[in-house]
């Protein structure tokens, strides 16, 4: 048994343990960092062959799925699991093709209202190049007890 964590480390641990379901696992999802002051989270994904198009690059839809997941993560984490966060609408720009490898996604909550939150995300491919961006509107619903 390790000593209980406190402060930001405990906060991050709690967010990491939050069950996101099988879809996130299929994307190789891992929440690696959060900064409540900046309103930002960092999430890693795995671009793997089962997500690829005929060009051997990630199908845009799965890139969108990763951006979607990271933006929901950002709002969920930065509101401290108080809400069940539902994606309402998102817009993605696909800047560069994404080959196999570990991807970093940085998502920021821009504004939290009473029942909605605005969020944006940037996805970097394994060499660190900016590969996709997104903005979205999410709905904040009362959380299911966990």
């Amino acid at each position: 048994m390790t000593a209980p964590l406190s402060g930001p480390a405990a906060l991050l641990r709690r967010q990491q343990q939050h069950d996101r379901g099988p879809a996130a696992r299929l994307l190789g999802h891992q929440l690696t960092a959060m900064d409540t002051a900046l309103g930002t989270v960092e999430v890693e994904f795995l671009a793997a062959p089962h997500l690829f198009n005929p060009l051997g690059m990630m199908q845009g839809g799965f890139t969108a799925a990763m951006l979607d997941q990271a933006m929901v993560d950002a709002v969920t984490a930065l509101t401290d699991l108080q809400y069940h966060v539902v994606m309402q609408a998102m817009q993605c720009n696909f800047l560069a093709a994404i080959g196999p490898g570990r991807l970093l996604c940085r998502a920021s909550m821009l504004r939290q209202g009473r029942s909605t939150a605005f969020v944006e995300a940037r996805l970097f491919e394994s060499a660190g190049e900016l590969a996709a961006t997104a903005t979205a509107v999410t709905a904040l619903q009362p959380a299911i007890p966990h």
Binding site: R20, A23, A24, Q59, A64, A65, M90
Partner: peptide
């Protein structure tokens, strides 16, 4: 396997289908 913890399909996968 495309579902969220709430048991509904992850929006991103719906995007992938429409894409």
């Amino acid at each position: 396997e495309f579902c969220t913890a709430q048991g509904v399909l992850h929006g991103g996968f719906l995007s992938a289908m429409m894409d």
